[in-house]
Amino acid sequence: MEQGTVKWFNAEKGSGFIERENGDDVFVHFSAIQGDGFKSLDEGQAVTFDVEEGQRGPQAANVQKA
């Protein structure tokens, strides 16, 4: 798993970007967020995640709040 920080997340659209510790920013969709309840992330929040190849390039998967 990688570690990173939420660069921004739009709760209305359900997507945003995570700033990786090593590498380019990666797209995140709300469906990749693990946990119960409303799936959203806050700017500056620390997260851990896997990276998968999506239709438009790398994207975060199995996102967990650190």
Rank of each mutant, 00 (worst) to 15 (best):
T5S: 07
Q55G: 11
P58R: 10
V47M: 02
G14D: 03
G16E: 03
A61Y: 09
E43R: 15
E12R: 13
R20A: 06
G37H: 06
V26I: 13
V26C: 03
K7V: 04
F30I: 09
D42S: 15
E43Q: 15
L41N: 01
N22P: 06
L41H: 01
N10S: 10
A32I: 01
K7F: 01
Q34E: 10
T5Y: 13
V26L: 12
A60D: 03
E2D: 07
R20P: 04
E19M: 14
E21M: 12
Q59K: 09
L41I: 05
A60H: 02
E52N: 08
K65V: 13
E53T: 11
T5I: 14
G23P: 02
K65E: 07
V26G: 01
G57C: 04
M1H: 13
A61D: 02
D24V: 13
E52S: 09
G57I: 04
E19D: 04
V51T: 06
G14C: 07
Q59I: 12
D50F: 14
K13R: 10
G16F: 03
G23E: 06
F30V: 10
K13W: 11
K7P: 03
D24N: 12
E52V: 15
Q45I: 08
P58G: 04
Q34C: 13
A60R: 01
T48N: 08
D36T: 13
V6G: 04
N22W: 10
Q45D: 14
K65R: 11
E12T: 12
V51A: 03
N62D: 03
G54D: 06
A32N: 09
E21I: 11
E21H: 11
Q34P: 06
F38H: 08
R56P: 07
V63F: 00
V6Q: 01
M1D: 07
A46Q: 12
G4V: 00
A32E: 07
W8P: 00
Q64T: 11
V51W: 06
R20F: 06
M1N: 12
E43N: 13
E52G: 07
S15K: 10
S15H: 15
A46L: 14
I18H: 00
G57V: 06
N22I: 11
R56D: 09
A66K: 13
T48C: 13
E12K: 14
T48F: 13
T48R: 10
F17Q: 05
G44D: 03
I33P: 03
V47W: 00
N62A: 04
T5E: 06
K65H: 08
A61S: 11
S31G: 08
F27D: 05
V63N: 00
F9K: 03
S15V: 15
A60W: 02
Q34G: 07
D36E: 13
A11C: 15
G23Q: 07
E43K: 15
N62G: 04
Q3Y: 14
A61Q: 10
Q3G: 07
A66M: 14
E43T: 14
L41K: 00
Q3D: 06
N10C: 13
L41Q: 02
G35L: 07
E21N: 11
G54N: 08
G14P: 00
V47T: 02
A66D: 09
K13P: 03
V26H: 01
E19F: 11
V6S: 01
Q45K: 03
K39R: 11
E43M: 14
T5W: 15
H29I: 02
G57W: 08
V28N: 02
S40E: 07
S15I: 15
E43A: 15
R20H: 06
Q34R: 08
F38K: 07
G14V: 02
L41W: 03
V63M: 01
E12A: 14
V28D: 05
D24K: 13
F30D: 06
G16Y: 01
Q64L: 08
G14M: 02
F27Y: 10
G37C: 09
E43S: 14
E19A: 14
S31I: 04
I18S: 01
P58T: 10
V6C: 07
V47R: 01
G44K: 05
H29K: 02
T5G: 01
E52W: 12
D24H: 11
T48E: 07
Q45W: 10
V6F: 00
H29W: 04
V26T: 01
F30G: 07
G54S: 10
D42W: 14
Q3I: 13
F38E: 07
T5K: 14
K65S: 09
S40G: 08
G4S: 01
E19Q: 14
D36H: 12
K13D: 08
E43I: 15
G14R: 01
E53A: 11
A11M: 10
G23L: 06
K65F: 10
P58L: 11
E12W: 12
V47A: 02
E53N: 12
E52A: 11
